[in-house]
Design a protein around this nucleic acid. Sequence first.
DNA 1: GCCTAGCGTACGTGATAACGTACGATCGTA
DNA 2: TACGATCGTACGTTATCACGTACGCTAGGC
Lengths: 200, 200
Amino acid sequence: MVLPVTTDEPYDVASVGLRVRALREAMGLSLRELALRCGVSAPMLSQVERGETSPTLQVATRIAHGLELRLSQLLRLDESGAVTIVRAGERRSGGSPDDGHRFEILTPPLPGQRAELSLHTLEPDGATGGPSDPPLHEPGSRETTLVAAGTVVLVCDGRRHELATGDCVTFDADLPHHFENPGTERAELYAVLSAGLRRS
Amino acid sequence: MVLPVTTDEPYDVASVGLRVRALREAMGLSLRELALRCGVSAPMLSQVERGETSPTLQVATRIAHGLELRLSQLLRLDESGAVTIVRAGERRSGGSPDDGHRFEILTPPLPGQRAELSLHTLEPDGATGGPSDPPLHEPGSRETTLVAAGTVVLVCDGRRHELATGDCVTFDADLPHHFENPGTERAELYAVLSAGLRRS
DNA sequence: GCCTAGCGTACGTGATAACGTACGATCGTA
DNA sequence: TACGATCGTACGTTATCACGTACGCTAGGC
């Protein structure tokens, strides 16, 4: 297998320090106060904030807890602060009329995005497909799908789950899965794919 | 200020090792192969996988890259593997008829959830409210909202953004914000709150 | 003015993370 | 059966993480 080795370094470790400092100051805490809260020495915190050292997962976890968030939250680099709007007519779309599955992606194609929202349409009488089609493992990702219209069947890891209009299902997206529309009317699905970038 | 110090340890560091091993084996890689990909020695990887050591953020980042994901993705502990369904009639709901804002939460109330999906209804003629109401900073969280019906105005950090049916907006949820419905018909919003647990 | 209290950071020590090497176990092949 | 190849892990050394202490600094108080 090839080794793509993402050359772009999404977050350099130093930026974590800046984030820690910003969060700490936003909470009005001093280094020693935060040190007490999380059980990490104040000098250590100082070094981490200045990027002079790379903390252990252990202490990084404690630091995150002291800031009242999870380590995975702390490590996100989303600097993309502003408001981004995707107008109804500007959606990225895909799928094919052949198999009766079409979809539109409602979130912007920015890197560092945490959740992707898409609208899927499944034609009646057995059309199959869905948010993350055939292979698409994307380890660690998770999917939430809302049935906005019609009825569908989710086949996840070999098990079938019947879903009616208004039902909402959450599952690990790195398991093999797909949706089917056994009904006689068109089905619409809203899918939230979280923490797994669709490598566009 | 009080120090709530979340007593529940959401993820123990050891579980990261299990996840690394699972992902590596899922990709069909040996310790040495992964070692080459990410620039971390094979013995180190072995120790991390067995939870015998807590890696530095630096090497943890490299390990994550070797597994083709971000560190924040790797660190999520969602062991809640299975499929969870919230039926249309079983939604958690809230809001008040007084101010014209009601909502239903479509995702299950499990801890470790990465994205929360909710459906909001804003009555016409100036009803205000929205996904994450008044204070609710939740540093680091991010929100995606789709206008499913009607027209609304997002006021985020003092700036007004007009949104029509089908428009989709993404922004940092830790900024002060709310939605208004200046129109004459009821508005419906789907909101995705990611990486910020609504502390229920 | 001085003195105390708080801040963030330099210093030196002990703990340990990370490396390279080498060992037994396992497997496919001759 | 013996062999080479590869697996995962134990070992010893070096680099560095993380601690406690101590320093210079900037404010408020008597």
